[in-house]
Design a binder for these strands. Sequence first.
DNA 1: CGTTTGCTTGATACGTATCAAAGTTGGTGG
DNA 2: CCACCAACTTTGATACGTATCAAGCAAACG
Lengths: 237, 237
Amino acid sequence: MPTVRTSEEPALETIRNVPPFSMLTEDEWREVVRTLTVRTYPEDTYLFFEGDPPSNLYVIVQGHVALIRHTLEGRDVVLDVMQPGNMVGELAIFEGVPYSSSGKTLDEVTAVVIPRERFHQMLAQYPRMAGAVIFDLTRRVRHLSDLVQSLAIERVERRLARILLRLARISGEHRDDGLLINLPLTRQDLADMAGTTVETAIRTLSRMRRQGIVDTSHGHLIIRDVERLVRIAEEGE
Amino acid sequence: MPTVRTSEEPALETIRNVPPFSMLTEDEWREVVRTLTVRTYPEDTYLFFEGDPPSNLYVIVQGHVALIRHTLEGRDVVLDVMQPGNMVGELAIFEGVPYSSSGKTLDEVTAVVIPRERFHQMLAQYPRMAGAVIFDLTRRVRHLSDLVQSLAIERVERRLARILLRLARISGEHRDDGLLINLPLTRQDLADMAGTTVETAIRTLSRMRRQGIVDTSHGHLIIRDVERLVRIAEEGE
DNA sequence: CGTTTGCTTGATACGTATCAAAGTTGGTGG
DNA sequence: CCACCAACTTTGATACGTATCAAGCAAACG
Protein backbone atom coordinates (compact mmCIF):
# COMPACT_ATOMS: atom_id res chain seq x y z
CA MET A 1 0.00 0.00 0.00
CA PRO A 2 1.68 3.18 -1.17
CA THR A 3 1.04 6.11 1.06
CA VAL A 4 3.18 9.19 1.10
CA ARG A 5 3.92 11.27 -1.92
CA THR A 6 5.48 14.60 -1.21
CA SER A 7 4.94 17.48 -3.55
CA GLU A 8 6.41 20.94 -3.32
CA GLU A 9 5.52 22.76 -0.14
CA PRO A 10 2.72 25.33 -0.13
CA ALA A 11 3.39 28.54 1.69
CA LEU A 12 3.53 27.75 5.38
CA GLU A 13 1.78 31.04 5.98
CA THR A 14 -1.49 29.38 5.10
CA ILE A 15 -1.53 27.53 8.41
CA ARG A 16 -0.68 30.52 10.55
CA ASN A 17 -4.32 30.90 11.59
CA VAL A 18 -5.20 27.27 11.89
CA PRO A 19 -5.53 25.74 15.36
CA PRO A 20 -3.42 24.73 17.16
CA PHE A 21 -0.97 27.18 15.59
CA SER A 22 -3.32 30.11 15.94
CA MET A 23 -2.78 29.84 19.70
CA LEU A 24 0.84 30.92 19.33
CA THR A 25 2.27 34.40 19.58
CA GLU A 26 4.16 35.79 16.61
CA ASP A 27 7.49 34.92 18.18
CA GLU A 28 6.48 31.41 19.08
CA TRP A 29 5.11 30.90 15.61
CA ARG A 30 8.36 31.94 13.99
CA GLU A 31 10.17 29.46 16.21
CA VAL A 32 7.78 26.59 15.53
CA VAL A 33 7.39 27.08 11.83
CA ARG A 34 11.04 26.33 11.14
CA THR A 35 10.56 22.70 12.03
CA LEU A 36 7.21 22.03 10.40
CA THR A 37 6.71 19.84 7.39
CA VAL A 38 3.85 20.28 5.00
CA ARG A 39 2.91 17.57 2.55
CA THR A 40 0.35 17.07 -0.13
CA TYR A 41 -1.29 13.71 -0.69
CA PRO A 42 -3.30 12.65 -3.71
CA GLU A 43 -6.91 11.51 -3.49
CA ASP A 44 -7.61 8.05 -2.10
CA THR A 45 -4.34 7.72 -0.19
CA TYR A 46 -3.84 6.30 3.28
CA LEU A 47 -2.02 8.58 5.71
CA PHE A 48 -1.92 5.64 8.11
CA PHE A 49 -3.58 2.30 8.64
CA GLU A 50 -5.52 0.99 11.59
CA GLY A 51 -2.99 -0.93 13.66
CA ASP A 52 0.07 1.00 12.52
CA PRO A 53 2.36 2.24 15.29
CA PRO A 54 1.74 5.93 16.03
CA SER A 55 4.14 8.00 13.99
CA ASN A 56 2.66 11.35 13.03
CA LEU A 57 -0.09 13.74 13.86
CA TYR A 58 -1.61 15.56 10.90
CA VAL A 59 -3.20 18.97 10.82
CA ILE A 60 -5.31 19.26 7.72
CA VAL A 61 -4.74 22.42 5.73
CA GLN A 62 -6.72 21.51 2.65
CA GLY A 63 -8.91 18.62 1.62
CA HIS A 64 -10.72 15.91 3.56
CA VAL A 65 -9.73 12.75 5.40
CA ALA A 66 -12.05 9.90 6.32
CA LEU A 67 -11.38 7.97 9.52
CA ILE A 68 -12.18 4.35 8.79
CA ARG A 69 -12.47 1.20 10.87
CA HIS A 70 -11.96 -2.10 9.07
CA THR A 71 -13.52 -5.37 10.19
CA LEU A 72 -12.30 -8.90 9.82
CA GLU A 73 -15.34 -9.67 7.71
CA GLY A 74 -14.19 -7.07 5.21
CA ARG A 75 -16.65 -4.32 5.99
CA ASP A 76 -15.59 -0.75 6.58
CA VAL A 77 -17.13 1.88 8.81
CA VAL A 78 -16.48 5.58 8.40
CA LEU A 79 -16.25 7.15 11.85
CA ASP A 80 -15.76 10.75 10.81
CA VAL A 81 -14.80 13.04 7.97
CA MET A 82 -12.12 15.56 8.86
CA GLN A 83 -11.71 18.90 7.16
CA PRO A 84 -9.22 21.78 7.16
CA GLY A 85 -8.39 22.82 10.71
CA ASN A 86 -8.96 19.35 12.13
CA MET A 87 -6.26 17.12 13.56
CA VAL A 88 -5.93 13.51 12.56
CA GLY A 89 -4.17 10.79 14.52
CA GLU A 90 -4.37 12.50 17.89
CA LEU A 91 -5.53 9.49 19.84
CA ALA A 92 -2.64 7.29 18.82
CA ILE A 93 -0.15 10.10 19.33
CA PHE A 94 -1.42 10.92 22.78
CA GLU A 95 -1.67 7.46 24.15
CA GLY A 96 1.28 6.01 22.28
CA VAL A 97 -0.82 3.14 20.99
CA PRO A 98 -1.45 1.99 17.40
CA TYR A 99 -3.85 4.00 15.26
CA SER A 100 -7.35 2.82 16.06
CA SER A 101 -8.59 3.72 12.60
CA SER A 102 -7.19 4.38 9.15
CA GLY A 103 -6.93 7.86 7.69
CA LYS A 104 -7.84 7.97 4.01
CA THR A 105 -7.80 11.07 1.84
CA LEU A 106 -11.07 11.70 0.04
CA ASP A 107 -9.64 14.37 -2.24
CA GLU A 108 -6.24 16.00 -2.57
CA VAL A 109 -5.07 16.75 0.95
CA THR A 110 -2.46 19.16 2.22
CA ALA A 111 -1.45 18.62 5.81
CA VAL A 112 1.12 19.62 8.38
CA VAL A 113 2.91 16.47 9.44
CA ILE A 114 4.14 16.47 13.02
CA PRO A 115 6.15 13.52 14.33
CA ARG A 116 4.94 12.17 17.64
CA GLU A 117 7.94 13.29 19.66
CA ARG A 118 7.90 16.72 18.13
CA PHE A 119 4.26 17.21 18.98
CA HIS A 120 4.82 16.28 22.59
CA GLN A 121 7.67 18.79 22.74
CA MET A 122 5.47 21.48 21.30
CA LEU A 123 2.71 20.77 23.80
CA ALA A 124 5.15 20.89 26.69
CA GLN A 125 6.64 24.13 25.42
CA TYR A 126 3.39 25.86 24.50
CA PRO A 127 0.71 24.55 26.85
CA ARG A 128 -1.83 26.85 25.25
CA MET A 129 -1.92 24.52 22.29
CA ALA A 130 -3.70 21.99 24.50
CA GLY A 131 -6.80 24.10 24.14
CA ALA A 132 -6.89 23.45 20.42
CA VAL A 133 -6.52 19.74 21.03
CA ILE A 134 -9.37 19.76 23.50
CA PHE A 135 -11.49 21.73 21.10
CA ASP A 136 -10.90 19.22 18.34
CA LEU A 137 -11.62 16.29 20.62
CA THR A 138 -14.88 17.76 21.83
CA ARG A 139 -15.94 18.20 18.21
CA ARG A 140 -15.26 14.54 17.61
CA VAL A 141 -17.11 13.40 20.71
CA ARG A 142 -20.09 15.45 19.66
CA HIS A 143 -20.10 14.07 16.15
CA LEU A 144 -19.64 10.47 17.29
CA SER A 145 -22.48 10.93 19.77
CA ASP A 146 -24.75 12.12 16.98
CA LEU A 147 -23.69 9.17 14.88
CA VAL A 148 -24.34 6.68 17.66
CA GLN A 149 -27.82 8.04 18.17
CA SER A 150 -28.48 7.97 14.44
CA LEU A 151 -27.29 4.40 14.04
CA ALA A 152 -29.13 3.23 17.13
CA ILE A 153 -32.60 4.39 16.25
CA GLU A 154 -32.88 5.70 12.71
CA ARG A 155 -33.46 3.88 9.44
CA VAL A 156 -31.14 4.07 6.51
CA GLU A 157 -33.01 6.78 4.63
CA ARG A 158 -32.83 9.14 7.56
CA ARG A 159 -29.20 8.36 8.25
CA LEU A 160 -28.32 8.94 4.61
CA ALA A 161 -30.18 12.23 4.62
CA ARG A 162 -28.12 13.37 7.60
CA ILE A 163 -24.92 12.31 5.92
CA LEU A 164 -25.68 14.12 2.68
CA LEU A 165 -26.49 17.30 4.60
CA ARG A 166 -23.32 17.04 6.61
CA LEU A 167 -21.20 16.45 3.52
CA ALA A 168 -22.82 19.48 1.95
CA ARG A 169 -21.94 21.53 5.00
CA ILE A 170 -18.36 20.27 4.90
CA SER A 171 -17.80 20.54 1.22
CA GLY A 172 -20.87 21.93 -0.45
CA GLU A 173 -20.87 24.26 -3.43
CA HIS A 174 -23.91 26.23 -4.50
CA ARG A 175 -25.04 25.62 -8.04
CA ASP A 176 -27.99 27.00 -9.89
CA ASP A 177 -29.65 23.58 -9.75
CA GLY A 178 -28.85 22.81 -6.14
CA LEU A 179 -26.10 22.09 -3.67
CA LEU A 180 -23.19 20.12 -5.11
CA ILE A 181 -21.29 17.80 -2.79
CA ASN A 182 -17.76 18.41 -3.90
CA LEU A 183 -16.18 15.09 -2.97
CA PRO A 184 -15.49 12.07 -5.17
CA LEU A 185 -17.47 9.59 -3.08
CA THR A 186 -18.44 6.12 -4.24
CA ARG A 187 -21.71 4.46 -3.25
CA GLN A 188 -19.61 2.21 -1.06
CA ASP A 189 -18.23 5.26 0.76
CA LEU A 190 -21.74 6.48 1.47
CA ALA A 191 -22.77 3.02 2.61
CA ASP A 192 -19.80 2.87 4.98
CA MET A 193 -20.82 6.22 6.41
CA ALA A 194 -24.43 5.17 6.88
CA GLY A 195 -23.62 1.77 8.32
CA THR A 196 -25.37 -0.12 5.56
CA THR A 197 -24.58 -2.07 2.39
CA VAL A 198 -23.88 -0.72 -1.08
CA GLU A 199 -27.10 -2.11 -2.43
CA THR A 200 -29.24 -0.47 0.20
CA ALA A 201 -27.38 2.82 -0.15
CA ILE A 202 -27.99 2.70 -3.89
CA ARG A 203 -31.66 1.85 -3.53
CA THR A 204 -32.19 4.64 -1.03
CA LEU A 205 -30.35 7.15 -3.16
CA SER A 206 -32.26 6.05 -6.26
CA ARG A 207 -35.53 6.60 -4.48
CA MET A 208 -34.38 10.09 -3.54
CA ARG A 209 -33.42 10.72 -7.14
CA ARG A 210 -36.81 9.57 -8.39
CA GLN A 211 -38.44 11.94 -5.90
CA GLY A 212 -36.36 14.82 -7.15
CA ILE A 213 -34.52 15.24 -3.88
CA VAL A 214 -31.09 14.61 -5.29
CA ASP A 215 -29.45 14.45 -8.69
CA THR A 216 -26.84 11.80 -9.29
CA SER A 217 -26.12 12.13 -12.99
CA HIS A 218 -22.69 12.64 -14.52
CA GLY A 219 -21.06 11.19 -11.41
CA HIS A 220 -22.11 14.27 -9.50
CA LEU A 221 -24.05 14.33 -6.28
CA ILE A 222 -26.35 17.32 -6.07
CA ILE A 223 -28.96 18.09 -3.45
CA ARG A 224 -31.89 19.62 -5.29
CA ASP A 225 -34.40 19.81 -2.46
CA VAL A 226 -32.60 20.72 0.74
CA GLU A 227 -35.80 21.34 2.69
CA ARG A 228 -37.16 17.94 1.89
CA LEU A 229 -33.88 16.32 2.86
CA VAL A 230 -33.85 18.23 6.14
CA ARG A 231 -37.36 17.01 6.82
CA ILE A 232 -36.27 13.43 6.28
CA ALA A 233 -33.22 13.94 8.48
CA GLU A 234 -35.10 15.60 11.32
CA GLU A 235 -38.43 13.85 11.30
CA GLY A 236 -37.69 10.69 9.39
CA GLU A 237 -39.94 12.21 6.72
CA MET B 1 -37.65 16.73 37.84
CA PRO B 2 -35.84 16.70 41.18
CA THR B 3 -32.11 16.39 40.86
CA VAL B 4 -29.70 17.35 43.59
CA ARG B 5 -29.75 15.96 47.05
CA THR B 6 -26.76 16.77 49.15
CA SER B 7 -25.63 14.44 51.89
CA GLU B 8 -22.74 14.92 54.29
CA GLU B 9 -19.37 15.24 52.61
CA PRO B 10 -17.07 12.24 52.40
CA ALA B 11 -13.43 12.85 53.15
CA LEU B 12 -12.06 14.98 50.35
CA GLU B 13 -8.85 13.00 50.61
CA THR B 14 -10.46 10.27 48.58
CA ILE B 15 -10.14 12.33 45.43
CA ARG B 16 -6.55 13.35 45.95
CA ASN B 17 -5.34 10.75 43.46
CA VAL B 18 -8.12 11.07 40.93
CA PRO B 19 -7.42 12.91 37.68
CA PRO B 20 -7.43 15.81 37.14
CA PHE B 21 -6.48 16.45 40.76
CA SER B 22 -3.67 13.96 40.69
CA MET B 23 -1.84 16.32 38.35
CA LEU B 24 -1.45 18.88 41.13
CA THR B 25 1.46 19.30 43.50
CA GLU B 26 0.81 19.05 47.22
CA ASP B 27 0.68 22.83 47.58
CA GLU B 28 -1.65 23.31 44.65
CA TRP B 29 -3.89 20.57 45.96
CA ARG B 30 -4.19 22.24 49.36
CA GLU B 31 -5.16 25.44 47.63
CA VAL B 32 -7.71 23.83 45.33
CA VAL B 33 -9.34 21.55 47.81
CA ARG B 34 -10.61 24.43 49.91
CA THR B 35 -13.10 25.38 47.23
CA LEU B 36 -14.29 21.96 46.15
CA THR B 37 -17.72 20.57 46.80
CA VAL B 38 -18.45 16.90 47.05
CA ARG B 39 -21.96 15.58 46.80
CA THR B 40 -23.68 12.25 46.93
CA TYR B 41 -26.65 11.46 44.71
CA PRO B 42 -29.06 8.56 45.09
CA GLU B 43 -29.58 5.97 42.40
CA ASP B 44 -31.61 6.95 39.34
CA THR B 45 -31.07 10.70 39.68
CA TYR B 46 -30.35 13.19 36.94
CA LEU B 47 -27.25 15.32 37.47
CA PHE B 48 -28.36 17.33 34.45
CA PHE B 49 -30.69 17.06 31.51
CA GLU B 50 -30.00 17.24 27.82
CA GLY B 51 -30.62 20.86 26.85
CA ASP B 52 -29.91 22.34 30.27
CA PRO B 53 -27.52 25.31 30.31
CA PRO B 54 -24.02 24.24 31.33
CA SER B 55 -23.64 24.69 35.06
CA ASN B 56 -21.28 22.14 36.55
CA LEU B 57 -18.62 19.66 35.68
CA TYR B 58 -18.64 16.47 37.75
CA VAL B 59 -15.73 14.26 38.61
CA ILE B 60 -17.04 10.89 39.67
CA VAL B 61 -15.58 9.57 42.89
CA GLN B 62 -17.88 6.64 43.40
CA GLY B 63 -20.69 5.03 41.43
CA HIS B 64 -21.70 5.17 37.79
CA VAL B 65 -23.37 7.70 35.52
CA ALA B 66 -25.02 6.96 32.19
CA LEU B 67 -24.88 9.58 29.47
CA ILE B 68 -28.22 9.48 27.69
CA ARG B 69 -29.66 11.06 24.57
CA HIS B 70 -33.43 11.43 24.38
CA THR B 71 -35.38 11.50 21.15
CA LEU B 72 -38.60 13.22 20.29
CA GLU B 73 -40.16 9.83 19.62
CA GLY B 74 -39.51 8.90 23.24
CA ARG B 75 -36.60 6.56 22.74
CA ASP B 76 -33.39 6.84 24.73
CA VAL B 77 -29.86 6.00 23.70
CA VAL B 78 -27.07 5.42 26.20
CA LEU B 79 -23.87 6.91 24.81
CA ASP B 80 -21.50 5.90 27.57
CA VAL B 81 -21.30 4.72 31.15
CA MET B 82 -18.92 6.74 33.30
CA GLN B 83 -17.13 5.40 36.34
CA PRO B 84 -14.95 6.75 39.16
CA GLY B 85 -12.17 8.92 37.77
CA ASN B 86 -14.20 10.03 34.76
CA MET B 87 -15.47 13.54 34.17
CA VAL B 88 -19.05 14.24 33.21
CA GLY B 89 -20.36 17.35 31.53
CA GLU B 90 -17.04 18.43 30.04
CA LEU B 91 -18.37 19.20 26.57
CA ALA B 92 -20.98 21.64 27.74
CA ILE B 93 -18.59 23.26 30.20
CA PHE B 94 -15.89 23.72 27.61
CA GLU B 95 -17.99 25.04 24.81
CA GLY B 96 -20.45 26.92 26.95
CA VAL B 97 -23.37 25.26 25.22
CA PRO B 98 -26.27 23.24 26.67
CA TYR B 99 -25.60 19.70 27.79
CA SER B 100 -25.83 17.47 24.73
CA SER B 101 -26.92 14.50 26.82
CA SER B 102 -28.41 13.79 30.22
CA GLY B 103 -26.35 12.40 33.09
CA LYS B 104 -28.25 9.80 35.09
CA THR B 105 -26.89 7.97 38.12
CA LEU B 106 -27.09 4.19 37.83
CA ASP B 107 -26.28 3.60 41.46
CA GLU B 108 -25.40 5.85 44.38
CA VAL B 109 -22.91 8.36 43.06
CA THR B 110 -20.42 10.55 44.85
CA ALA B 111 -18.94 13.31 42.74
CA VAL B 112 -16.91 16.47 42.96
CA VAL B 113 -19.06 19.27 41.64
CA ILE B 114 -17.18 22.07 39.94
CA PRO B 115 -19.05 25.14 38.69
CA ARG B 116 -18.21 26.12 35.14
CA GLU B 117 -16.43 29.35 36.03
CA ARG B 118 -14.43 27.69 38.76
CA PHE B 119 -13.25 24.97 36.40
CA HIS B 120 -12.07 27.47 33.84
CA GLN B 121 -10.14 29.27 36.56
CA MET B 122 -8.53 26.05 37.65
CA LEU B 123 -7.51 25.20 34.11
CA ALA B 124 -6.01 28.63 33.59
CA GLN B 125 -4.15 28.43 36.88
CA TYR B 126 -2.95 24.84 36.55
CA PRO B 127 -2.54 24.11 32.86
CA ARG B 128 -1.29 20.65 33.67
CA MET B 129 -4.86 19.66 34.43
CA ALA B 130 -5.58 19.92 30.71
CA GLY B 131 -3.76 16.64 30.30
CA ALA B 132 -6.35 14.87 32.41
CA VAL B 133 -9.14 16.41 30.36
CA ILE B 134 -7.52 15.26 27.15
CA PHE B 135 -7.04 11.80 28.58
CA ASP B 136 -10.69 11.56 29.48
CA LEU B 137 -11.81 12.84 26.10
CA THR B 138 -9.64 10.35 24.23
CA ARG B 139 -11.20 7.56 26.26
CA ARG B 140 -14.63 8.75 25.22
CA VAL B 141 -13.70 9.06 21.57
CA ARG B 142 -12.33 5.54 21.66
CA HIS B 143 -15.44 4.15 23.29
CA LEU B 144 -17.82 5.98 20.98
CA SER B 145 -15.83 4.76 17.98
CA ASP B 146 -16.20 1.19 19.18
CA LEU B 147 -19.89 1.75 19.70
CA VAL B 148 -20.37 3.24 16.23
CA GLN B 149 -18.67 0.28 14.64
CA SER B 150 -20.73 -2.12 16.73
CA LEU B 151 -24.02 -0.43 15.88
CA ALA B 152 -23.13 -0.11 12.21
CA ILE B 153 -22.36 -3.74 11.46
CA GLU B 154 -23.22 -6.07 14.32
CA ARG B 155 -26.49 -7.75 15.27
CA VAL B 156 -28.17 -7.31 18.60
CA GLU B 157 -26.81 -10.49 20.16
CA ARG B 158 -23.24 -9.46 19.51
CA ARG B 159 -23.81 -5.92 20.68
CA LEU B 160 -25.42 -7.15 23.88
CA ALA B 161 -22.53 -9.51 24.48
CA ARG B 162 -20.11 -6.60 24.22
CA ILE B 163 -22.20 -4.53 26.57
CA LEU B 164 -22.43 -7.22 29.22
CA LEU B 165 -18.68 -7.75 29.10
CA ARG B 166 -18.04 -4.04 29.38
CA LEU B 167 -20.42 -3.68 32.30
CA ALA B 168 -18.66 -6.56 33.98
CA ARG B 169 -15.33 -4.82 33.48
CA ILE B 170 -16.74 -1.59 34.87
CA SER B 171 -18.62 -3.03 37.78
CA GLY B 172 -18.13 -6.78 37.89
CA GLU B 173 -17.89 -8.83 41.05
CA HIS B 174 -16.59 -12.39 41.10
CA ARG B 175 -18.99 -14.92 42.54
CA ASP B 176 -18.62 -18.64 42.82
CA ASP B 177 -21.23 -19.09 40.09
CA GLY B 178 -19.93 -16.43 37.73
CA LEU B 179 -19.38 -12.74 37.26
CA LEU B 180 -22.05 -10.54 38.81
CA ILE B 181 -22.81 -7.23 37.14
CA ASN B 182 -23.23 -5.00 40.14
CA LEU B 183 -25.60 -2.41 38.69
CA PRO B 184 -29.38 -2.16 39.02
CA LEU B 185 -30.10 -2.15 35.28
CA THR B 186 -33.52 -2.65 33.78
CA ARG B 187 -34.06 -4.44 30.49
CA GLN B 188 -34.87 -1.05 29.07
CA ASP B 189 -31.45 0.23 30.14
CA LEU B 190 -29.76 -2.64 28.35
CA ALA B 191 -31.91 -2.05 25.27
CA ASP B 192 -30.96 1.62 25.27
CA MET B 193 -27.30 0.65 25.44
CA ALA B 194 -27.61 -1.85 22.62
CA GLY B 195 -29.68 0.39 20.38
CA THR B 196 -32.63 -1.96 20.29
CA THR B 197 -36.07 -2.39 21.87
CA VAL B 198 -36.94 -3.88 25.25
CA GLU B 199 -38.58 -6.87 23.66
CA THR B 200 -35.59 -7.74 21.55
CA ALA B 201 -33.22 -7.21 24.46
CA ILE B 202 -35.34 -9.55 26.56
CA ARG B 203 -35.54 -12.19 23.86
CA THR B 204 -31.80 -12.09 23.32
CA LEU B 205 -31.07 -12.29 27.04
CA SER B 206 -33.56 -15.13 27.46
CA ARG B 207 -31.81 -17.09 24.75
CA MET B 208 -28.51 -16.56 26.53
CA ARG B 209 -30.08 -17.73 29.77
CA ARG B 210 -31.44 -20.86 28.13
CA GLN B 211 -27.95 -21.55 26.78
CA GLY B 212 -26.43 -21.18 30.21
CA ILE B 213 -24.42 -18.12 29.27
CA VAL B 214 -26.03 -15.80 31.79
CA ASP B 215 -28.21 -16.10 34.87
CA THR B 216 -30.94 -13.56 35.36
CA SER B 217 -32.79 -14.86 38.40
CA HIS B 218 -33.52 -12.89 41.56
CA GLY B 219 -33.11 -9.64 39.64
CA HIS B 220 -29.42 -10.33 39.37
CA LEU B 221 -27.40 -10.38 36.18
CA ILE B 222 -24.62 -12.94 36.29
CA ILE B 223 -22.31 -14.00 33.49
CA ARG B 224 -21.82 -17.73 33.88
CA ASP B 225 -19.86 -18.46 30.70
CA VAL B 226 -17.49 -15.59 30.02
CA GLU B 227 -15.61 -17.42 27.27
CA ARG B 228 -18.75 -18.09 25.33
CA LEU B 229 -19.82 -14.48 25.68
CA VAL B 230 -16.42 -13.32 24.48
CA ARG B 231 -16.74 -15.58 21.47
CA ILE B 232 -20.10 -14.03 20.62
CA ALA B 233 -18.72 -10.53 21.10
CA GLU B 234 -15.60 -11.08 19.02
CA GLU B 235 -16.76 -13.43 16.32
CA GLY B 236 -20.51 -12.97 16.39
CA GLU B 237 -20.56 -16.56 17.72
C1' DC C 1 -10.76 -4.06 -27.00
C1' DG C 2 -11.00 -6.79 -23.15
C1' DT C 3 -10.82 -6.27 -18.27
C1' DT C 4 -11.66 -4.17 -14.12
C1' DT C 5 -14.32 -1.32 -11.12
C1' DG C 6 -18.27 0.77 -9.80
C1' DC C 7 -23.37 1.01 -10.37
C1' DT C 8 -27.95 -0.88 -10.66
C1' DT C 9 -31.97 -3.91 -10.27
C1' DG C 10 -34.39 -8.16 -8.79
C1' DA C 11 -35.66 -12.19 -5.76
C1' DT C 12 -35.44 -13.97 -1.41
C1' DA C 13 -34.33 -14.75 3.51
C1' DC C 14 -33.66 -13.16 7.90
C1' DG C 15 -33.41 -10.05 11.91
C1' DT C 16 -35.76 -6.94 14.41
C1' DA C 17 -39.60 -3.62 15.29
C1' DT C 18 -44.19 -3.32 16.40
C1' DC C 19 -48.51 -4.39 18.49
C1' DA C 20 -50.95 -6.98 21.82
C1' DA C 21 -51.65 -9.30 26.04
C1' DA C 22 -50.56 -11.65 30.09
C1' DG C 23 -47.38 -12.73 33.99
C1' DT C 24 -44.36 -11.03 37.72
C1' DT C 25 -42.63 -8.16 41.26
C1' DG C 26 -42.29 -4.65 44.81
C1' DG C 27 -44.32 -1.21 47.21
C1' DT C 28 -48.40 1.29 49.42
C1' DG C 29 -52.15 1.93 52.06
C1' DG C 30 -56.16 0.17 54.11
C1' DC D 1 -51.43 -9.04 56.40
C1' DC D 2 -53.73 -8.70 52.31
C1' DA D 3 -55.34 -6.21 48.21
C1' DC D 4 -54.18 -3.25 44.89
C1' DC D 5 -51.44 -0.63 41.79
C1' DA D 6 -47.70 0.60 38.97
C1' DA D 7 -43.65 -0.65 36.89
C1' DC D 8 -41.16 -4.06 34.87
C1' DT D 9 -40.78 -8.50 32.46
C1' DT D 10 -42.09 -11.98 29.33
C1' DT D 11 -44.10 -14.38 25.32
C1' DG D 12 -46.59 -14.53 20.87
C1' DA D 13 -48.11 -13.03 16.14
C1' DT D 14 -47.15 -10.27 12.46
C1' DA D 15 -45.16 -6.69 9.46
C1' DC D 16 -41.45 -4.39 7.69
C1' DG D 17 -36.66 -2.94 6.68
C1' DT D 18 -32.48 -4.43 5.25
C1' DA D 19 -28.91 -7.99 4.18
C1' DT D 20 -27.73 -11.30 1.06
C1' DC D 21 -27.13 -13.56 -3.28
C1' DA D 22 -27.26 -13.24 -8.14
C1' DA D 23 -26.89 -11.12 -12.49
C1' DG D 24 -26.60 -7.53 -15.84
C1' DC D 25 -24.94 -2.88 -17.15
C1' DA D 26 -21.96 1.26 -17.80
C1' DA D 27 -17.87 3.66 -17.61
C1' DA D 28 -12.97 3.93 -16.93
C1' DC D 29 -8.53 2.04 -18.02
C1' DG D 30 -4.29 -0.16 -19.67
